[in-house]
Amino acid sequence: MGNRQDGVWMQAIACLPEERAAALSRVAEQERIEELRLRCGEAPSVRIGGAERPLSLAPVTADELRETVSRAARYSVHSYAESMRQGFLPLEGGHRLGLCGTAVSENGSVTGVRRISSLNLRVARQIDALDDILAPYIGEGAPFSLLVLAPPGCGKTTLVREWVRLVSDAGHTTAVADERGEIAGLAEGVPQFRIGRCTDILEGCTKKQAALMLLRTMSPALVAMDEITSPEDIEAVALCAHCGTAVLAAAHAAGPSDLRRRPLYRRLLSLGVFERVLTIEQKDGKRSYRMEKTEGTTC
């Protein structure tokens, strides 16, 4: 795992057609790229520090997009029907390919995406520099419930992953409800990220389903999950709380006040589960971190 960062970009773009991957293998600042955007008829662009930058490369074609999806699905799209229904394909190493195009509906529910118009390749990275920021809050005492807040693309999943690793390595049994396979990045049962020596992972099902199974079978002190986006996700948080298990989760919000303006998150906060909120802020390409008690007092 020590040299993983050296090949992160190459691993992420391995799902692309060979000619496109070869061109992208030469782009600058590979270690800072957060996302690769592929839009039909436009040149590829990359997201760095929260801003998109176009690349001086040939425009993306519809054939490229179709081939990329086929490669990402290992030429078996039907095997990934559930994730495609949610608009993404999981990739080895915890990377994720988001899909846009024409939604396919059946009985009022989206069942997939066809006629792909654009793709978003999210690059997953391990950032050990967070240790100095997070370690003071993790010790021998029982884990506490924490909600991580940030706008899209500001590193919520990365922070959740590092919190899991530190809590787990402190000796606390930790479970990950990894619905989209982004936190641990399992490959043949082996996590592709360092997530701690006391961590158990269940991926490929909803947060609620995973929480039920993990609580029944693994006796975790902490259950970690990624973004809360639906009422069912809130039910997963409530299940953990009712069992006395700490919860680590994330939400799209610029801060606690922004969170409280949204009906879904007001319901989440009404559970009274989270003891602290950690907000990630990004300005001029640099991130800062603010830990607060849920009463609003800075820790």
Rank of each mutant, 00 (worst) to 15 (best):
M1C: 11
R4K: 14
V8M: 10
Q11P: 03
A14I: 11
C15N: 12
E18R: 14
R26V: 15
I33T: 11
L38K: 00
G50D: 06
E52D: 02
V60Y: 05
D63L: 15
D63I: 13
E64C: 07
S70I: 02
R71D: 05
A72K: 03
M84S: 03
G93W: 08
G94P: 11
G101M: 08
S109V: 15
V110P: 10
L121I: 11
R122P: 06
D132W: 07
I133R: 12
Y137A: 15
I138V: 15
A142S: 09
P143I: 00
P143S: 09
F144C: 05
L147Q: 01
G155P: 13
T157S: 11
R165C: 15
L166W: 10
A170H: 12
T173R: 12
A177G: 00
G181Y: 04
G185Y: 07
V190H: 02
Q192Y: 07
F193M: 11
R194F: 06
G196V: 15
C205L: 07
K208R: 13
Q209Y: 02
M213C: 13
M213H: 05
M213R: 04
L214M: 09
T217P: 04
M218W: 00
L222K: 06
A224Q: 11
I228M: 06
S230D: 12
A238L: 11
A238K: 08
L239M: 08
C243G: 00
T245A: 08
A249G: 03
S257M: 11
R261N: 15
R262W: 08
Y265I: 12
L268M: 03
L271Y: 01
G272R: 04
G272Y: 10
E281M: 05
D284C: 00
G285W: 01
R290P: 02
M291L: 15
G296W: 07
G296F: 10
T298W: 04
T298K: 04
